[in-house]
Computed example of a mutant assay.
Amino acid sequence: MSSNDNTARSMPDVASQARAQVAGALDWVGMAGIEAPVLVADADGQIQRMAARVDAQVNLHRADARGIHMSRLYLMVDQALSAQTLTPRMLRQLLRGFLDSHADLSDRARLRIRYDHLVRRAALKSDNSGWRTYPVTLTAHMQGQEFTLELSTEVTYSSTCPASAALSRQMIQQQFASDFAEGQALDREAILAWLGSEQGIVATPHAQRSIASLRLQLGPGFEFHIEELLDQVEQSLGTPVQTAVKREDEQAFALANGGNLMFCEDAARRIQQTLGQDERIVDFAVRVEHQESLHPHDAVAYASKGVDGGLGADAF
């Protein structure tokens, strides 16, 4: 036995040797905001290393115990996240390790990992591309042999108001009627020039940056493919925000918005339908927020899968 081992054994361990000053079981004890890397596979199977913040906790069901072994949790988090790709299987094994190392103190464990997921996105028309980051939170629980995993993220998109678009079209019609008198012979070149002028297009619909917040409970036995999920939601919305933008890209984005008018209710239902068709998702809750350019307040809508006792709209 080394001298270091002897020194460690001789050091006082107040947490394990002393009784609690005031007896009582505790719901959760552990650490919040541990700085750690995560290894995440992208859509091409390449492994990315990203910075994360990790919460690692167990309950303390022994009312007389002074505390838990926080260093054990930290070392297990460090060893697992530094060396293994982030998967449900790895998270399950990590939580199992939490409980095994606290067998006399705890029967529940949880882990929360927060990081920004990087995705390279191509421009709509040009040959350019750029990076988008999506905030991801993974929350894993274990009680006995029961393991649950929840994924939260956000998708940012553009929403153009259908009511505003209809009112704008009406104003353009009225301006046309004013500039081209009834019975007047219409000249094609004159009309083309009018359509390209500020005098002709007198009104435009309002659009706003919008955010879809998602909470998903993943089914057992499935891997989570974050980029596939993000792609599905963005495709259902039709107008995700862009990265690199040249004029041809901006024009394509304007065309997409013009052909994709939606209220917040429309956006919530589109996502609800998309997530409801994915067998890997046991339950979900959605909150969409259209950050109004017309009002000083936001328009919001909520949707869920409708599982009894599930996430529901109150998840946000």
Score class of each variant (00 low, 15 high):
1 M>S: 13
3 S>L: 14
5 D>E: 15
7 T>P: 00
8 A>D: 13
15 A>N: 12
20 A>C: 11
21 Q>E: 15
21 Q>M: 13
21 Q>D: 13
22 V>I: 15
27 D>A: 14
30 G>R: 01
31 M>I: 12
33 G>V: 06
36 A>W: 02
37 P>T: 00
38 V>P: 01
39 L>G: 00
45 G>H: 05
46 Q>Y: 11
47 I>G: 04
50 M>G: 01
51 A>K: 09
51 A>V: 06
52 A>P: 02
56 A>C: 06
63 A>C: 09
65 A>P: 05
65 A>R: 13
73 L>P: 02
75 L>D: 10
75 L>A: 08
76 M>L: 15
85 T>W: 01
87 T>N: 13
89 R>V: 13
90 M>C: 03
100 D>I: 05
101 S>K: 09
106 S>L: 06
111 L>Q: 01
111 L>N: 01
113 I>G: 07
114 R>P: 02
115 Y>H: 06
116 D>C: 04
116 D>A: 12
117 H>W: 08
118 L>A: 14
119 V>N: 02
120 R>E: 09
124 L>M: 13
125 K>I: 12
129 S>Q: 13
131 W>L: 12
133 T>R: 14
134 Y>H: 14
136 V>W: 02
136 V>Y: 04
144 G>Y: 00
147 F>C: 08
156 T>S: 11
161 C>S: 13
162 P>I: 03
163 A>M: 12
165 A>F: 11
165 A>D: 10
169 R>N: 04
172 I>Q: 08
176 F>M: 03
178 S>L: 10
181 A>L: 07
188 R>D: 09
188 R>L: 15
192 L>P: 01
198 E>D: 15
199 Q>K: 14
205 P>K: 01
212 A>V: 14
216 L>M: 15
225 H>K: 12
234 E>M: 01
237 L>I: 11
246 K>I: 04
247 R>N: 06
258 G>P: 00
260 N>E: 02
263 F>D: 03
263 F>Y: 15
263 F>S: 05
264 C>Q: 14
270 R>H: 05
271 I>N: 02
271 I>M: 04
274 T>E: 08
276 G>M: 06
277 Q>G: 11
277 Q>T: 13
278 D>C: 10
278 D>W: 13
280 R>S: 08
283 D>A: 07
283 D>M: 08
286 V>I: 15
289 E>M: 07
295 H>P: 06
296 P>H: 07
299 A>P: 07
302 Y>D: 00
305 K>T: 11
307 V>Q: 12
309 G>R: 02
310 G>P: 04
